[in-house]
């Protein structure tokens, strides 16, 4: 056996992969967007599995409250506020020095993603918001790259594999976002729910990267580990022939400038304004319930709602527009926004 491959012997003994599948995996480049709970698990899994290259994108740094569920990171990474993508890269190099790891500390916007997509073989979902997911979905469709969606909150999670030209896309499945405010910052998250999602994402990734397309799961998995529920749901009926992302005349709306969430510092103020993308519904009352339930201070008047979290004050208008006070940092403002709204 090739001595470079010998470390993967237990994966090659698995017949559907075998030595041929291992060689295929070793040629592949996976892009993981978001290096939080999901992204640290899937990047560790794919680095150990022996992909050629991993690109990791994350705009955030390691915080102590991440350590409860985000693998790869240590107390020192949190104390030094190391950027997540860079902290992950450092650990992954110690785990498998044969894998090329590229860390990008930035917001995963359309311009960045289109710039690096050229030789990517697989898109892996590690993000915490649907704006970025719809962007990944459009990218997947435009460049014909499989996209392994996953998300979780509390003990609840879901995973689905999108194969362009074969399965429905994320836009077919979820036309309008249910922004009900259940985020890891409002209702929490337990690490086993993360692992359950990444077990599915990882298995799908290995199937795709090793060339076992016939084994790819065709159903949408949804589970609750605390309630002991597991559903495997057929999704074919949701494929839309006129879908703007995967239909007959696609427009890839999230790759068009002007369609994305707009985030800008208000002139001369320590405040960032956020206007969400168009396809989101905005049930402000439900959000308020979630925030109160999470113990956050909520105030307001008939025209707006204010909520205070981690020292920053966010003000929401009924149309979904938000002002994040106390910062001029766009990424910090996005982080607060997504932690409150989803």
């Amino acid at each position: 056996m090739d001595s470079q491959l010998e470390r993967y012997s237990r994966q090659m003994l698995f017949k559907p992969i075998g030595p041929e599948g291992q060689i295929e995996i070793g040629k592949k480049h996976a892009l993981i967007v978001g290096v939080g709970a999901l992204g640290t698990h899937t990047s560790e899994l794919l680095a150990r599995a022996g992909v050629r290259k991993l690109t990791l994108i994350d705009r955030d740094y390691v915080d102590r409250s991440n350590l409860q569920r985000q693998h790869l990171f240590t107390e020192r990474d949190a104390a030094e506020q190391w950027p997540k993508a860079e902290a992950a890269k450092e650990r992954l190099k110690n785990i498998n020095s044969q894998v090329e790891v590229e860390a990008i500390v930035a917001q995963a916007d359309a311009a960045l993603l289109e710039d690096i997509i050229a030789d990517v073989d697989l898109l892996v979902d590690g993000t915490d918001n649907f704006e970025t997911r719809f962007l990944m979905n459009d990218l997947s469709q435009k460049y014909k790259i499989p996209y392994v969606f996953g998300s979780c909150v509390g003990s609840f999670g879901m995973a689905f594999t999108i194969i362009p030209g074969v399965t429905p896309c994320l836009q077919c499945l979820i036309k309008r976002l249910p922004l009900q405010g259940q985020t890891c910052d409002t209702v929490g998250i337990i690490a086993p729910a993360v692992q359950m999602v990444t077990a599915h994402q990882g298995a799908e990734a290995l199937k795709i990267l090793s060339g076992n397309m016939e084994a790819v799961r065709k159903t949408y998995v949804s589970f609750d580990l605390w309630e002991n529920e597991y559903l495997s749901l057929k999704a074919d009926a949701l494929k839309e022939s006129n879908c703007l992302s995967c239909g007959e005349t696609p427009e890839y709306p999230f790759l068009q400038s002007g369609q994305e969430m707009k985030v800008a510092v208000l002139c001369g103020r320590d405040t960032v304004q956020i206007r969400p993308a168009d396809n989101q519904s905005f049930p402000l009352e439900k959000l308020v319930d979630q925030w109160r339930s999470a113990g956050l201070a909520v105030g307001g008047n008939p025209f707006l709602i204010s909520v205070t979290k981690d020292g920053a004050k966010a003000v929401f208008f009924k149309d979904g527009r938000a002002l994040i006070h106390g910062t001029k940092d766009l990424n910090e403002a996005r982080k607060i926004y997504h932690s409150l709204v989803g």
Binding site: I174, P178, S232, K234, A237, S281
Partner: peptide, 16 residues
Amino acid sequence: GSLDGIMIAVNEEFVK
């Protein structure tokens, strides 16, 4: 409350 955006499955199959 609002079920806008909620996916609905009947007998283990998502439907329109």
